[in-house]
Design a protein around this nucleic acid. Structure first.
Length: 434
DNA sequence: TCTGGGGTCCTAGGACCC
DNA sequence: TCTGGGGTCCTAGGACCC
């Protein structure tokens, strides 16, 4: 048995904790550069605003209906997420934190009334943190996701599903006839693992509801769509194919990519950008005690603009695996010099660290390298950088690879919102509900 | 004018080997 | 003249997720 608990309209709910005046108002939280809507309040959803919709397309609603667009504050959301997850863990013996706003809970061995238990946990999260949540429970993860969808939709759109399924929905306690009715009332593209493309193909084949999908022949599904969708179908029938991942492996690749606030064509600001991207990626790398053996750099024009498009990437191999910001930054700059071309308006660039290894496995080699300084000194320097940035905010200092480091504004990107005071004052004392 | 960022998994096809 | 077939590894690209 699995539970899926997630925060409703999570980023918007986080903002409302500190600005209660936003309750009842249509609110969206915007991505980097205030580009797209990445979270919407119920009121904003009711206005027809889509996930990922460009802000310029809906900005006029500010004047007309009082829509509020907020720049994202990911440091804040991360802190609130941590607290929410630790309370959610009380639901059952094992937990997989699946994303910033949702976690699966393994419910095996939990006795008693599961719905009551889930209601208690979500009440606690609402009272202590101020975040409204929904819980779905079922014998497989795919079904738990679906139950969670039902719990949210029953609350947001009364009449769509039986009212008693709102907020907490346990498929395991539902009679077969009711479960069938729910499956038949739910569109196939709501299923976890059915995206835009496969959803369209399914509908074209006459498979429009969850009920239709669950009753397809598994061999036929495998033949036409592959093993991934086959697993989904089996999970919809209650057969566990996807287990709980409560001890995730270290990441296999680490990326830092950004769109620019305005087009950039010159080489120098692009070098500076990828140098900082490499530095940020290296921080993440060190936090999982890893080392990268190669660096991928890419740059591209905007696919939304007319005119000649240019998009290139290059993989720069390193002499040996490292987590040193300076070496990774130098490699990123080398890569950018190799792929940059004169005369283009670039819209985005990025750095990805690839072929990651465990730090300890390359330690011996590093120690032999006198040219690049001892690995102990390097590690102390990097630890100091990480400590300062942890204390005063991400990107506060950054080890240069070009000797001409400057503020990120030089390449036209709006600064991310930071709340260092908030993170340092944030203790284990529960916050009163706003 | 203005269009996010960071991941995972699977598959097909080419290179290479025996 | 006539030139196999199977296995493995790697990579690029597609699809999905939030």
């Amino acid at each position: 048995m699995f539970a899926l608990i997630d925060g409703n309209n999570f980023y918007v709910s986080c903002e409302r904790v500190f600005r209660p005046s936003l309750n009842g108002v249509p609110v969206v939280v915007l991505s980097n550069n205030d580009g797209c809507c990445v979270a919407r309040s119920n009121e904003a959803k009711d206005l027809g605003i889509k996930m990922g919709q460009p802000w310029f397309e809906v900005k006029h609603l500010e004047r007309i209906v009082g829509l509020v667009g907020l720049s994202a504050n990911f440091v804040l959301y991360g802190d609130i997420s941590d607290r929410m997850m630790s309370i959610a863990a009380g639901l059952g013996p094992t937990q997989e934190v699946y994303s910033i706003d949702e976690s699966f809970i393994g419910m095996d061995g939990v006795r008693g009334d599961l719905v009551r238990r889930a209601r208690t946990v979500r009440e606690r999260i609402l009272q202590w943190i101020g975040i409204p949540t929904c819980v779905g429970m079922a014998p497989t993860k795919t079904l738990a996701k679906l139950a969670n969808h039902v719990a949210k939709t029953a609350e947001r759109k009364p009449g769509s599903y039986p009212a008693e399924l709102a907020q907490v929905c346990n498929f395991g306690a539902l009679p077969a006839a009711e479960l069938e009715a729910v499956f038949k009332a739910t569109e196939v593209n709501e299923v976890w693992g059915v995206g835009r493309r496969i959803g369209r193909q399914l509908v074209d084949a006459g498979v429009t509801t969850v009920w239709d999908l669950a009753n397809l022949d598994v061999a036929a599904v495998r033949g036409r769509w592959g093993v991934v969708l086959e697993r989904t179908v089996r999970e919809l029938r209650g057969q566990t194919c996807i287990g709980l991942d409560d001890a995730p492996e270290p990441k296999q690749q680490i990326a830092c990519t950004r769109s620019f606030g305005r087009p950039v064509s010159a080489l120098a600001p692009l070098e500076q950008a990828v140098s900082e991207f490499a530095s940020r990626a290296a921080e993440k790398l060190r936090s999982q005690r890893g080392a990268a053996a190669s660096v991928l750099v890419f740059v591209r024009t905007s696919p939304f603009r007319q005119g000649p498009q240019y998009s290139r990437s290059i993989v720069v191999p390193l002499r040996r695996p490292t987590a040193d910001s300076r070496l990774l930054g130098t490699a990123a700059i080398d890569g950018m010099r190799a792929i940059w071309r004169e005369g283009h308006d670039f819209a985005k660039a990025g750095v990805m660290l690839l072929d990651l290894e465990d730090e300890d496995r390359c330690q011996g080699e590093l120690d032999l390298d006198v040219q690049e300084g001892s690995s102990r000194d390097t590690r102390r320097l990097m630890a100091a950088v990480d400590a300062v940035n942890g204390r005063f905010g991400k990107g506060m200092i950054h080890v240069g690879s070009t000797g001409q480091s400057g503020p990120p504004r030089a390449w036209g990107m709006r600064q991310e919102r930071r709340t260092p005071q908030y993170t340092t004052q944030w203790s284990d004392v529960p916050v009163a509900r706003a």
